[in-house]
């Protein structure tokens, strides 16, 4: 199976390991993630002002490219996923804006493409049972905290592929890989998003709430599918450990990295060494790398 794939700017630069792990894992599962021939940055945030149509033109251009290559678009990053999916809904449901945007970018697009997160493809195309069968490593001893953040689930009326207050897709993914799910309350609280650029202290504390509760629930590591969440959660743990006595840093992996590891793939291109909190010791201790 071949599915057109949108990597996005962060996965082409700072989060290459996320991208590599995605492509290789899906290849191992028989799915080619075929990078769009042309794509541009999605804008990294869905414009919330009513007449901000120019900001929608960027993401829509990607959808137009995707439509030329198939009827689906696979996305790894949950922020890109949020922006693309919501922009697609605008094109599908809001006639006014559709006309104007099509006019700006000289296209004739009406939201035909199905924007899918990689986890959705695992759930709906591969199936959890088949995924479980493809797993080569024994993760039974690994406790994983799923981290959804905001963009993946909200607003539910638009994102709506899982219960926004009680999501299960990451849990099912972790279980399919054979690992334990660490049940902690803050899996869908915001990590601080872009406010890191404005007020670092606030972002750190927002991340700390999540990290500490995952640790408390006995997690060995956290998985997420957003590079900004990954960064916010990963980057400040040394500072947090100094500030909050007793806090033990916890590695934050991308979902696709854990997938590749479970599938027994060679992890050299996964950039596991680029994380601030090194995940390799715990992975080695559990016999996974």
């Amino acid at each position: 199976m071949r599915i057109p794939y949108y990597p996005g700017c962060t996965l082409s630069t700072k989060a290459k390991g996320f991208d590599q792990a995605a492509r290789q894992s899906f290849a191992a599962l028989g799915i080619e993630l075929a990078e769009l021939k042309t794509w541009n940055c999605c804008g990294a945030t869905f414009p919330l002002s009513r007449d901000n149509l120019l900001d929608l033109a960027g993401p829509v251009r990607n959808l137009v490219s995707a439509a030329a290559e198939g009827d689906k678009l696979a996305v790894a990053c949950s922020t890109c996923f949020n922006v693309l999916k919501r922009s697609n809904l605008v094109m599908r449901n809001e006639e006014d804006k559709r006309e104007k945007i099509n006019f700006f970018i000289e296209a004739d697009y009406a939201g035909s493409v199905q924007v899918l997160h990689l986890l959705e493809i695992l759930r709906d195309e591969v199936g959890w049972d088949n995924l479980a069968k493809a797993v080569k490593k024994n993760l039974a001893d690994l406790s994983v905290a799923p981290y959804y953040g905001c963009m993946f689930l909200r607003p539910p009326k638009e994102m709506g592929f899982d219960d926004h207050e009680n999501p299960q897709i990451l849990e099912n993914f972790i279980r399919a890989l054979g690992a334990q799910v660490a049940d902690y309350p803050h899996r869908a609280e915001c990590c601080g998003n872009y406010i890191a650029a404005f007020d670092l202290e606030t972002t750190r504390e927002m991340s700390y709430l999540i990290l500490a509760s995952a640790r408390k629930a006995g997690a060995d590591l956290i998985v997420t599918s957003c590079p900004l969440c990954q960064f916010n959660l990963d980057r400040w743990q040394q500072d947090l450990a100094m500030k909050h006595g007793g806090f033990r840093p916890i590695p934050v992996l991308y979902d696709t990295q854990l997938l590749g590891i479970a599938l027994g793939l060679d992890t050299t291109t996964f950039d596991l060494d680029k994380h601030y909190v090194d995940p390799r010791p715990v992975l080695a201790e559990k016999g996974l790398i």
């Binding site: 890191a196 650029a197 404005f198 960064f231």
Partner: peptide, 13 residues
């Protein structure tokens, strides 16, 4: 910072 943080920060600020 990941690209994303700039781009969205840029948009918000």
């Amino acid at each position: 910072f990941p690209q994303q943080a700039f781009i969205s920060g840029f948009r918000k600020y």
